[in-house]
Nucleic acid binder design. Structure first.
Lengths: 237, 237
DNA sequence: CGGTTGTTTGAACTGATTCAATCTGTGTGG
DNA sequence: CCACACAGATTGAATCAGTTCAAACAACCG
């Protein structure tokens, strides 16, 4: 599995690579890339799609990281899912109730829903792949729910860092990870304030679990990190 | 939509009814029921499936409510999803990392993964239905994440009550709802302690938003209830 | 250089937890 | 029909994790 993820990392040049890395047969990945589409470079500064839009588009992430977000009644923002290279964002008939924003500058393939639907119908294998991806994302949502509901703030942040290392294909015991998030974004993912995230990160560093070099993170004690995070990567498949 | 949900409510006698209520064409619903399967009555007292199991089975809920749950490192329990009549629980190849428990006594159809897979391949329409159901469940997960991450304890409980009313097809402004949850279960869903859930419920009652009659709940002011919960049912589709 | 975005720190506050005790309803066996 | 057990609900008091508000600092960029 780690091999699979390694391939799905940020360096892949083509979407096909990323999709194949995510477990899709090469000939089917080619079908997706052959679908009529636009390529868009998405800037992290401003929202890419507002909540309520995105009823007719399919997105595939070629490189970078996208975030789905929602806003509660009083305007507090919550990031509800991340999409790495090879991941897709499917529309719902009723329109999506979430918005989409880039975490880092990303390249995104934007296709028509109708074209994609046709593809799905013509290629049952592709339908199965999409279902499997969706189930993987569900498993990640579940893990996030456990984080938000039951873990303390330290464990939540640690868990996010562990998951991000795995999903972006970094080998945490040897490589440093280019942490893609601002502290505000970590707060929006883990349901806290950026002030507290700051304190938690400082704590983790003080305890010798991580070292920080600008935005980069070096895991000094991966085993202990996993332990306090309660992180076991099996849910990532 | 409320009509659709009304049909999916607890009273439906057959699984077909529930599935059709959830939007499946009758002839395809029949296919699912024709699949080789066992019928099991699940008791709420003890877990139905432990985490780690459920790699080869498909579940469909005929009546009642099932909960998927996970446990964090230190043994604290989090309910991550609910499945009402007409909902299904699909396996993952790697086995599921969640357990399954009934909230109320439920009737469940248990089929073989292989049979179900065959069904999916043979009927693209069914594949589409399953994908759509899965997306609906994802949308619910997202809303739960917003709850756990950004809403205060009152809003979290209120939101759960609103969602439960909708999903179980109760018309909140006229009918009373047979609240299926113990306070501990509400705590396990909303990421709190049962002690606090108790205080929140007492608060809601004191404010005149709900009235309680044993386990039953009467919504005294549905509009205000929705408001403090930040509940807008569009995500349920 | 000034403007902007992100990080860091302190002090006061508060919502929710924890622990512990009590109360209530229901079912069971004598 | 009562005694007992058990699960769930309720309440209080002490504590604490995380928020809020405010201010300062650092890094980057045109």
């Amino acid at each position: 599995m780690s091999k699979r993820l390694r391939k799905a990392a940020g360096e892949s040049v083509t979407l096909s690579d990323a999709l194949v890395g995510a477990g899709l047969a090469p000939e089917l990945a080619a079908k997706i890339e052959a679908m009529p589409h636009r390529e868009i470079a998405v800037d992290p500064k401003r929202p890419f799609r507002e909540p309520g839009g995105l009823a007719d588009e399919v997105l595939f992430v070629r490189s970078g990281i996208l975030a789905k977000y929602k806003t509660d009644g009083s305007g507090r923002r919550q990031i509800i899912a991340l999409r790495f290279a090879g991941d897709g964002i499917l529309p719902r008939e009723t329109g999506t109730d979430f918005g989409v924003q880039a975490i880092v500058r990303s390249e995104v393939l934007v296709g028509q829903r109708s074209d994609f639907d046709k593809l799905i119908v013509d290629h049952p294998e592709l339908a199965r792949f999409v279902l499997k991806l969706t189930q993987r994302h569900a498993a990640i949502s579940y893990e996030w729910l456990v984080s938000c509901g039951r873990r303390d703030s330290t464990a939540r942040v640690a868990h996010l860092l562990c998951e991000t290392a795995e999903r972006s294909g970094v080998d945490p015991s040897h490589e440093r990870m280019a942490n893609p998030f601002t502290q505000q974004q970590i707060a929006d993912i883990t349901g806290q304030t950026s002030v507290n995230v700051n304190r938690v990160l400082a704590d983790l560093e003080r305890q010798g679990l991580i070292r920080r070099d600008g935005r980069e993170i070096i895991f000094e004690d991966w085993g202990e990190m996993r332990r306090i995070a309660g992180f076991s990567p099996s849910y990532l498949q």
